[in-house]
Nucleic acid binder design. Structure first.
Lengths: 187, 187
DNA sequence: AACTATTCTTGATAAATATCAAGAATTTCA
DNA sequence: TGAAATTCTTGATATTTATCAAGAATAGTT
């Protein structure tokens, strides 16, 4: 199995191997250079990508500053889900934090998958429910933890990010100032 | 159209009226008294309810205290989504904050809907994506707003809660202490 | 209505976190 | 490689929010 087959099988639980191969064949490998934009707020997000290597930052502008919603690395899917599914204007801007390799499916091809794979909508739903649960958990961390606890929790689960991504973005994503993150790291 | 038909049509966009009527027929009206539990953490959540009247609080125990994740009122659906879809043990406890009327569908009947309504999984997926987007927005409020801004934002959008629900739960849901919420209200 | 529970408010104080400013370290790029 | 730009750290200080404690207000119960 290729890497992408492996990930899609484990995320979506595609049972039949020939279906899996068909799905994967829709994804095209491309690269994006550090600093380039995958998506800008207001545009339509017509693609869903799987990160083979590199990092992408999902963020939006608030009144005062940029707010980093998430940083996605190897093995993550990236898209503006609402824009991708409903053809809304995107709420997020997505930018490469490093040269990255992406397997990308267009929304056009994505729609075809439903006609090819039996139970696709069921599997897709289940995948989105898992995403929903993760985001819900993240709210819980904001309701029940201090900044320092969030830092530790995140650090334990995402060590790889800390050497490869500017810390200011991690701070924003954790809901604290860069100075505060810096001080917590010292300990 | 009944109230429930109206809500389900607007949330899920069911096109065919006879399908809508069939779906709604699975929902049974029942009542739950103030203080009673709709669901307890660790149990299986085998039902999805629509609130006709009243309020339910969704919460979980953290190390220190109870953390209120959300308070649902009239017009909301309540369930532990992950438990309902995957038959996991529930992560949330759900308790009535007032005598409430619920339209409830069992997970058993819920599964039948997929066989009755064409495009059900598609519609269901779209509904869950909307829920995902709402939760994502909520994270954004924690990353970009102060406690006071979150209070104002929430108050503007949920005025009805403030007279009918203990404020300590609203405070918890907004990620602040009850005293802080009290002080903000004074202004 | 009177008693009890619970919830809410308020003040005093402590703790957590943000802001500002400057210098150090690192990265970028010509 | 070296200069410029960006990012990170650190200290001093301000602001926000939490905690503790007590009394006031409200809701629940007999």
């Amino acid at each position: 199995m290729t890497e992408l087959e492996h990930y899609i099988a484990s995320y979506l639980g595609i049972g039949k191997f020939d279906e899996l191969v068909q799905i994967v064949s829709f994804f095209k490998l491309s690269t994006i250079k550090k600093g380039e934009y995958f998506l800008k707020t207001g545009k339509n997000c017509d693609k869903l990508s799987f990160i083979k290597s590199g990092f992408l930052r999902i963020f939006a502008a608030s009144e005062k500053e940029e707010v980093t919603q998430w940083i996605a690395g190897k093995g993550y899917f990236v898209t503006d889900l609402s824009s991708f599914i409903f053809d809304n204007p995107a709420r997020w801007t997505i930018q490469a934090l490093a040269d990255s390799e992406l397997y990308t499916i267009s929304s056009e091809d994505y729609k075809k998958v439903g006609t090819i794979v039996s139970k696709w909508h069921e599997l897709e739903k289940q995948f989105i429910v898992r995403c929903f649960t993760l985001v819900e958990d993240r709210i819980f961390t904001h309701l029940s933890m201090t900044a320092e606890e969030r830092y530790h929790y995140f650090f334990e689960h995402n060590k790889e990010l800390f050497n490869q991504v500017p810390l200011q973005y991690i701070a924003s994503m954790l809901g604290m100032s860069p100075e505060t993150l810096s001080r917590m790291r010292r300990k």
